[in-house]
Design a protein around this nucleic acid. Structure first.
Lengths: 369, 369
DNA sequence: TTGAAAGCGATACCAT
DNA sequence: ATGGTATCGCTTTCAA
């Protein structure tokens, strides 16, 4: 009889909700008779049923105490007898019960913790990580936690998680959200800041890439280069386009020729390989790279071959100093710092007027590379 | 009359709960008469009262719609008239209303998102950040979000936030929690993993520091050093003690003298300064540093002064390659990878038996520095 | 010390 | 398309 009962198959009715309710009632009754039939409390009827989450009510029943007691034990409240405590913890342990933080938070009196969300790009040069590091360090002193929201292609999935997360602000690193997702954020009044990309009518902070390209061009020209080239990173990125545009325009004005163009992915290895090609071809005497990682690869190739190629990178990440690499620095630490400065007022809803847009200017760090 | 009412001072009764309830009822009634008295809905009576959180009910009333409609608007559900939508969003905007993610999560059907918590140490060499970077990258492919929990001296405050956070696991970087806090985590069945410190009877992963010290000593001995010294980092840290112990024991066995000891904080600058002292004193011919950051400072001093001092660092962070610094590598990337591997089964509750303890072995990277 | 009951603020179903 | 109600799983109060 017990076996039979345990295998009853509940067919979903028109409303799964109702069906579930029915089952719960069923289990409730069943549980009541537990002592007679000796069926484990946890019996589920079928895998078609959504797995029931364990609640303190379940724990309380099984431990033979009230839910209040369970709650108190879980929260280490005083005035609990050792025996109750032990009983509860035993059941908790046995079922690997985990409290629902949502429910707890909802019921609690004191609220409002500060949590800032961050979206980091997939294909990332180390630059973003250094910006992130800077952001992290600033928030560390402000009693603000940081959540890094994982995301893949489908931003809509990510946005869904964002909305489930009680953020007080969101930082978007080199990511563009589409209208619909943005609207969702706006509906929910979650302030957000674009980092490293310019967005009209939005809070954003970025470093002027066009100017960076110009600086790089001037660097190579000053070194006496007459046959400069550019190694692209991700060509679909606006940053890549802008850097090249500034670079090419300056070169063309000065030399009346367009710079040669190469393409690499953002790794030292890729930079090294392209550099070997460039050196072999012998058609260039100066290289401007989309980012420092590529440039370091180029530098390695130069040092290995003894080539006289000049090279300049972009970003100003920490290792560039060690390699003695000239670079157009975006000062990741500063960017992070300013980003935090921008976000703070948004968190506290001190949104005076329109969007705050910050444009920083990159600087040349000349290490004679 | 309006003014008077608005300034009524509610004296807290024996139960603040009851007092609050009374006020809510009061406001409810008041709100009902709103059109007659033209009092802003948000009127609070006194700063002694806890600020009432706005709910969708409030929004619904003010927008003149039902709560269902408000919810639908906020979630961009279909089948909403433009007029309702506009009305709701207007009110939302006006009051800067933010949804309660807890309540929403509780009410929602689909649950269970994966979130791993991380505690990073305050005083950190870059090593930890590289381990973190590795961890982050691994989780990125696993649909798991990461939350960095800010913490200061009072871990109890942090633990409280941890418990409020529905984590599916926690990673403790170079931090030791006391018994009580640990018990709280255990009560809640939140699995945790110590990273970079050995803890008996707990899940942990760390790199053998004693062996690292031995390797460093042998390196200097092989370079022909006869007067080696050690630059300490944070002396209270077990890692520092262990590295020194391994180093000193090996040196003493080989040379029958104890190595000289210096102290630095974890910055290049500090390493540089100490190195200048060492070079000036001329009593050493080899330096083993607690971490790469210090060692790089030493290296700079050596290169600037043209000293023949040998130097070896510890950690194997990325920049060590660029500086051509010999180091005892803890391979942060690997540590992160293994840490994630360890945590994953904990998340899925595949806790076969006892604590899983991983000890990795550091390796010498000889760059002839 | 303990159990029971009343919220917390949203979602989702159902009926309209 | 919309309003109302039950419900989510917990904390806290109150009474015992």
């Amino acid at each position: 009889m017990v076996e039979q009962t345990a295998h009853i198959r509940f067919v979903r009715g028109p409303s799964p909700f109702a069906a579930r309710k029915t089952f719960l009632e069923f289990r409730e009754v069943f549980s009541f008779h537990k002592r007679f039939v000796d069926l484990p409390f946890h019996t589920t009827y079928d895998e078609t049923m959504e797995k029931k989450r364990l609640t303190i009510k379940d724990i309380a029943r099984e431990a033979g105490v009230g839910i209040g007691t369970v709650s108190r034990v879980l929260n280490n409240s005083p005035h609990i007898s050792e025996s109750s405590k032990k009983a509860v913890l035993q059941v908790v342990e046995r079922h690997n019960y985990q409290i629902s933080a949502e429910a707890a938070g909802l019921a609690r009196k004191t609220k409002r913790r500060k949590l800032v969300g961050i979206l980091l790009p997939d294909i990332s040069n180390h630059y973003f990580f250094e910006v992130f590091e800077s952001v992290y360090k600033k928030f560390k002193n402000l009693d603000i936690d940081l959540i890094i929201l994982n995301y893949t292609d489908h931003t809509s999935e990510t946005v869904k998680r964002i909305l489930e997360t009680n953020l007080c602000a969101l930082m978007l690193f080199a990511i563009h959200l589409d209208k619909e997702d943005l609207q969702l954020l706006k509906n929910r009044n979650i302030p957000y800041l674009y980092v490293d990309s310019y967005q009209p009518d939005e809070h954003c902070i970025h470093v002027d890439n066009h100017t960076g390209g110009v600086l790089a061009a001037n660097y190579l020209l000053n070194k006496g280069c007459s046959k400069p080239c550019y190694i692209h990173g991700p060509t679909q990125a606006q940053t890549d386009k802008d850097r090249y545009a500034g670079f090419a325009a300056t070169i063309e004005t000065a030399l009346s020729v367009s710079p040669l163009q190469y393409h690499a992915i953002i790794t030292e290895k890729s930079g090294y390989e392209i550099a070997m090609q460039i050196i072999d071809a012998g058609e260039c005497d100066g290289v401007f790279c989309f980012c420092d990682e590529i440039a370091i690869g180029v530098l390695k190739a130069i040092r290995r071959t003894g080539s006289s190629l000049s090279v300049i990178g972009y970003d100003g990440i920490r290792v560039s100093e060690a390699w003695n690499l000239s670079t157009i620095s975006q000062d990741p630490e500063l960017v992070g710092e300013r980003a935090v400065q921008s976000v703070l007022p948004l968190i506290d809803k001190i949104t005076d007027e329109g969007p705050k847009q910050i444009q920083l200017v990159p600087v040349l760090i000349d290490r004679n590379s």
